[in-house]
Computed example of a mutant assay.
Amino acid sequence: MAELTFTHTPPVSTAKAADLSAVFYREYALLARNRVNLIFGLAPTLVYLLLVNTSLGNVVGDIDYRGTTLPFEMFLLPMVLAMSVVSASGTTGMALFQEEMSGVSTQLWSWPLRRSRFLLGKILAGVSLVLAQTLLALGVAVVLFRYPFPVSHWITMLAALVLASVAFNGLFLAAAILIRDYRTFSVLSTVSVLVLVFTAPSVSPVEQLPTVLRWISVVNPVTYAINGMRDALVSGFGAAWPSLLVLVAVAAVTNVVAGRALLRRTRNL
């Protein structure tokens, strides 16, 4: 009688690059195809850029910022960009809830996908979308208002913009993971945009803020995003690097917290 033998061949693992690119494409499509989230991310920015800037420009006039006199539209630009970053970052959190409510998260983790690649793809997709929306706002601003800043200052400002995008994308991603209720997160993310922006030196220098707001601005990460971009445009890297350093620290902390929380949450699916 012939002896039966069985062989087992393990499945071929997916290439790391292909695995990560697939996750990135999926996350980007999930974020970019939701027109409601895109509108909520862009609308506040365009309103402040087109209405607040033009309506208050003639009333406020020039502003003295660290020894430099700036027209109001130049002074307000970092605030508009920071608002765009904060508003767009909220969409990454909304995407998490959409995945779980539709059951996609459970289906996703039935596939042998490494959590580290999923996390990296989600972060990269979120940051790229935040940057895309903010750069669109910047392009509109440059077309409407001619800013006489040198190229080196623009490069430093863009570095501050990238760091702010990474920091706030991680912040809202961590909040969405730690807050389990969709409605609670939706309300908090909407309110937090206004609170974060207007407790920072957005429309006036920090010296002109009320005492309580001045204290709050010290621990408000939006303060360092606005000051970093404003100092970069006015004076260059030499004046902006302390704020950039704070943004690096905020980006590292928020994304580590978001990553650990996301990995812990996926184990319970």
Rank of each mutant, 00 (worst) to 15 (best):
G61L: 13
R117I: 03
L70F: 12
G90I: 08
L131T: 00
G93H: 05
V86G: 00
E100W: 11
L138H: 01
M157Q: 07
A164F: 03
Q107G: 13
R35L: 15
G126W: 03
I63Q: 10
G90P: 02
E99R: 07
E73W: 13
S87W: 04
R117Q: 13
L56P: 09
R117Y: 14
W109P: 02
S105V: 12
R35H: 12
S84L: 06
G126F: 02
H153G: 01
L42E: 02
A95S: 15
L46W: 03
T106N: 09
L136E: 00
G90A: 10
S152N: 12
A137I: 00
R146H: 14
F149G: 02
V86C: 03
R115C: 02
S87N: 10
W109L: 15
L138R: 00
V143H: 06
L46C: 03
R114V: 00
R146E: 11
S102Q: 14
L138N: 00
P150G: 07
F72S: 08
A164C: 07
A141C: 06
Y48P: 00
Y147K: 05
G126N: 03
L136V: 10
G61H: 13
G67F: 13
R114Y: 05
L77M: 14
V140E: 04
S105Q: 12
R115T: 12
N53W: 04
E100H: 12
A137D: 01
T54A: 11
L158V: 12
W109C: 04
L161F: 06
V162H: 07
R114K: 11
A160Q: 07
H153K: 04
W154T: 01
L49W: 03
F97Y: 15
A125F: 09
L42Y: 02
F72P: 09
P44S: 10
E100L: 11
P44I: 05
M74R: 11
M157F: 12
F118A: 11
S87P: 01
L144H: 05
I123N: 01
V80C: 06
G121N: 02
R35P: 03
T106H: 09
L135F: 06
S116M: 07
L131Y: 03
L131N: 01
A137S: 11
D62I: 11
T156V: 15
P150W: 10
W109Y: 15
L38Q: 14
F168E: 00
S84G: 15
A82W: 09
T54F: 09
N53S: 14
S55D: 10
A125I: 09
A141N: 08
R117H: 14
V162C: 07
M157A: 14
S87C: 10
L136I: 10
R117L: 14
P71M: 13
V166F: 08
L119K: 01
L131M: 10
I123T: 09
L129H: 01
R66N: 14
V60D: 12
L51H: 08
M79C: 11
A95K: 04
G126M: 02
L120R: 07
H153F: 04
V143D: 03
G67W: 13
G121K: 00
S110G: 15
L161S: 07
N34F: 09
A43H: 06
M94V: 13
Y147T: 05
T134A: 05
V85H: 10
L81F: 09
